[in-house]
Amino acid sequence: MATLTDFHSLAERVRNWGRWGADDELGTLNFITPAKIAAAAGLVRHGKVFPLGIDFGSSGPQGAFQFRQNPLHVMTVDGGDAKTLAEYGPKWLRNSVAGELSSFFADNPFRFNDDMIIMPLQAATQWDALSHVYYADQLYNGFPAESVTSQGAFHCGIDKVDGKGITSRGVLLDLVRYRGADTYLAPGAPITADELDECAARQGITIESGDIVLVRTGWWDRYLEARDGAEPYSGLDWTCALWLHEHEVAAVAADNLMVEDPASGVDGTFLPLHMLCLRDMGLMLGEYWDFSALAADCAADGVYEFQLVAPPLRVIGAVGSPLNPIAIK
């Protein structure tokens, strides 16, 4: 078990504060250059599209932690409303919302349905913004943690990266196939940096500056079987932060709920990789991605690189965002 002294030593080695200027709020997304984006587009050879997002609905993986629930989908206007309001609305619902709706339906064929969704922004497939995790009262690049208020994140919010687009070369590292696991990486064996290198070599792929690395642990496949959002698993060891730093990875995403291994590996702290990536490196984390179809195709044709398009929603001041990322081969 490592100590907090070991943690802080690694933090000093991987910290990118000031690397792209004192006002930078993009972090390692700066590695995605125009040339990198153009090269990623050149990886599309067959027009095969793989959506990597999971369903946003009541059967999702949230709920195991009480502070974050599954999405609640609510219809605000439907066919029953149209029928009833067209018949009764003008007579008794004047000067009300229902009365306003009835005016759309009366004496004409026009009808419509409307809905809304209530959910945490990180309820399913998501990006963690750089403002999501911090320690020692500082966010990435030294911005004060108190700049995140009840009104949102004034620094390092998810809206700050929207203009960047988050599209680059994506690389899948299939640790399930690498380890020869039946379905998923069972708990107790964190993924090491050496394994990431060995998996890439076996797949015939080289990690390049500006890549978005996707790590398949098989957790999502397991979830579809067991429907247990708290199912334990193995994820990235906290020391993989140095590997991500040395390879100049732009972002990393996984098919599990925290990317990193739930066993801390550092005595006296929780989720050390989150702290190193988001706060020190400025490297965004993607969680709850679905790699099943993409992994099967990569194994079939031996091509583990592709164009990845993964923009967040531009929610002003948000510390995370839902998305439906797309891999294109």
Rank of each mutant, 00 (worst) to 15 (best):
R68N: 15
A106N: 04
M119L: 12
K160L: 05
K83T: 15
L72F: 12
A38R: 13
T167R: 15
W127M: 02
M119P: 06
A38L: 09
P71W: 04
Q69C: 06
G53C: 02
S102G: 04
P61V: 02
V49Y: 02
G99A: 07
E87Q: 12
Q69V: 13
Q66T: 15
V97R: 10
A136G: 01
L101G: 01
N95H: 11
G79D: 10
P90C: 03
G142S: 06
G60K: 00
L121Y: 03
F105D: 00
S168E: 04
G60A: 14
Y135V: 07
M119E: 08
S102R: 05
T84P: 00
Q69P: 03
L72Y: 11
A41S: 11
V148W: 01
L139S: 00
Q66R: 13
H155Q: 12
N95A: 14
M116W: 06
D115A: 07
H73D: 14
G42C: 00
Q66W: 15
A64K: 14
Q126E: 03
A86M: 09
H46W: 10
G60L: 04
F50Y: 12
I166W: 01
F105W: 03
A153M: 00
P120F: 02
S103E: 15
K48S: 09
R45A: 11
Q138R: 13
K164Y: 11
N141Y: 03
R45N: 04
W92A: 15
F56W: 11
I118Y: 09
D115P: 00
A145R: 14
F105M: 06
D115Y: 08
P61T: 02
P61I: 12
L93R: 04
R68L: 12
L121C: 07
G157L: 03
D78T: 01
R94S: 10
D137N: 05
Q138D: 06
A38H: 13
D159A: 00
G165D: 11
V133E: 06
L139M: 11
G63R: 05
T84W: 14
Q66P: 11
T76C: 08
N113L: 08
G63Q: 12
A124N: 10
D55K: 09
I118K: 10
V49H: 05
P61A: 12
V161K: 03
Y135G: 08
A40V: 05
D115M: 08
S147G: 09
S59K: 10
L139D: 05
T167V: 12
G57A: 08
Y135P: 09
Q62T: 07
I118P: 03
F56V: 14
D55F: 08
A64Y: 14
N113W: 02
M116S: 03
G163Y: 08
